[in-house]
Design a protein around this nucleic acid. Structure first.
Length: 201
DNA sequence: TCTCAGATTAACT
DNA sequence: GTTAATCTGAGAC
């Protein structure tokens, strides 16, 4: 990493829209994690949209202690634990909805890869961030970052695509049904960059 | 108060 | 292909 690289967070207005609109536009953006002076970055290659009008969403049945961030202001981190073991990282996004968020499912690592390998305990690039629980571990994301403002250049934020980053933003966006759900499978709210090698599956 | 399913992963056979 | 690991909230009792 060089000191000349500057990442600017996306503006709040980017997140003040429906999750299904925000989710595909997040593809190709860069997730930036500052960790002990080091910079860990990855291109977002796979997302899923969730909203309070969706039976599969945590926000569907009202606010609980865990999901309260979904009902808060847009552009913040919603982090939760799944199956008692793994964390999933979401970005809150909603227009006039009472709650909404976009799940980040997979990244393409571009900076701080050695640190990610340490955190994950794995060496293969394709095993670092190709799943929701994997990327949170690779970037050391946990509940300490719950509610973080992703429009501020702090420990964690989302920036415009870095120049020369494999031209990820030129890839085509593909749409499909979401993964791992038992309800609302006919809602095509999973978005990913076509043929990217770092998709979760 | 108790039970179960879940936006998952990795280590088994 | 199958299963264990193990936390939270909803729904049953």
């Amino acid at each position: 990493m060089t000191a000349t690289e500057v990442f600017s967070p996306l503006e709040r207005s980017f997140y003040q829209r429906h999750p299904a609109t925000v989710a595909p536009e997040l593809l190709g953006k860069v997730l930036v994690r500052k960790l002990e002076g080091k910079l860990l970055c990855g291109i977002i290659v796979e997302t899923e949209a969730y909203s309070s009008e969706d039976p599969a969403s945590h926000g569907f049945r009202g606010m609980t202690e865990r999901n309260r961030a979904m009902f808060g202001p847009p552009g913040h981190a919603y982090i939760y634990r799944i199956h008692g073991l793994h964390y999933c990282f979401n970005i809150t996004a909603r227009g006039s909805l009472p709650a909404g968020a976009v799940l980040i499912r997979a990244l393409e690592p571009i900076r701080g890869i050695e640190v990610m390998q340490q955190l994950r305990g794995r060496h293969e690039l394709r095993a670092l961030t190709t799943g929701p629980g994997k990327l949170t571990k690779a970037l050391n994301i946990d509940v300490r970052l719950y509610g973080s403002d992703l429009t501020e250049p702090g420990e964690l934020f989302v920036a415009e695509a870095a120049t020369g980053a494999r031209g990820a933003q030129c890839d085509r966006v593909a749409v499909s049904g979401r993964i791992g759900l038992s309800s609302a499978l006919d809602t095509p709210w999973r978005f990913h960059l076509h043929a990217n090698p770092y998709l979760s599956r």
